[in-house]
Amino acid sequence: MAHNSTAQSDEMSLGDRFNAVAAWPMRILFGLLDRPFRAIQRLFGIERMPYIFLLPNLAFFGLFVVVPLFINFAFSATGGTNLFLADRPFVGTEQYRYLADCGSYLDPSTCREDRFWRGIYNTITFVVFQVAFMVLFSLVTALILNRKIRGRGFFRAAFFFPVLLSPVVVALIWKWILLRDGVLNAGLTSIGLDRILFFVDPTWSMFWAIFVSIWAHMGFYTLILLAGLQAIPPDLYEAAEMDGTKRERIFWRITLPLLWPNLLVVIVLALIKAVQIFDEVFVLTGGGPGTATQFIVQYIYTTGFSNQVQNFGLAAAASVVLGVVLFALTLMQLAASRRREDN
């Protein structure tokens, strides 16, 4: 007993010693900060101190998010090719008018900046199919993974792994599969079929852009929906069973309404993410063939940075248009989240 307590006290004293050593830099720091903070507190009052503590983060956020937002807005009202705002001539809404100058909005080839409109139409096509199929696949996958199936843990992990990959890695993996001499074509030729030049055909390119993006992201949405499904008390299903409810009716009348708040969040998040699509498709197809898979963000990037004539003003104006769309979607997302919390 005596031996034990000695060992314990040794251990304690070791811990204490470690704490003492670890604590001294903190003590010096607190000592240094104590006087100025007391002075600040005297100056502003204790109830305003939370804002003082928020200030560093707000400054950082302001410098790297809010200020660039305004700079971008300012750029959108200027013309020319100079980089510095001071050197750029003020053109007012000229860039926006240029973007909006169309013979018919339904036909991009009648627009002065047809690449912008093709980007918009491509993005709309992408968003509609990608979001619809991704939500559907995520829901079906979550419903299956929520059941007591063999190897459930493995499948849950397998569906989530692509989310952990960088978009460039995702694109390179699929490029390796889909290129002219890729794995898929090797498979096709080995069973006597013709090669398909996926990235030469506009429809195939759009299909694979949507497919790869669904593959890369659906694990994340599946996870949200799975959490939503698991939050539905099993008692409700048993009560429905006792009530003589058929399986389809249980899905439509119990599962779906109770999952709806989660589903709404998933739909809006997927929408936001889909509108922003750029990196993986850019690496996969380069926007081609032609402009078949060139989306709005790629248009902004190439207009502003990679074209020979770097048209910052036009790119900034397109960014503002995209920003407004994303802002509206974000408001929807917040409303959906609030609704989920209310439920």
Partner: peptide, 28 residues
């Protein structure tokens, strides 16, 4: 369970949270 003609009252009540009291009672 659905064909045994029995009714059960659960410890947690197991009421459908998204339905009104009327709908809860009418559902079966």
């Amino acid at each position: 369970a659905s064909e045994r003609g029995l009714a059960m009252v659960f410890q947690s009540y197991a009421l459908y949270p998204h339905m009104s009291v009327y709908k809860n009672m009418a559902f079966g």
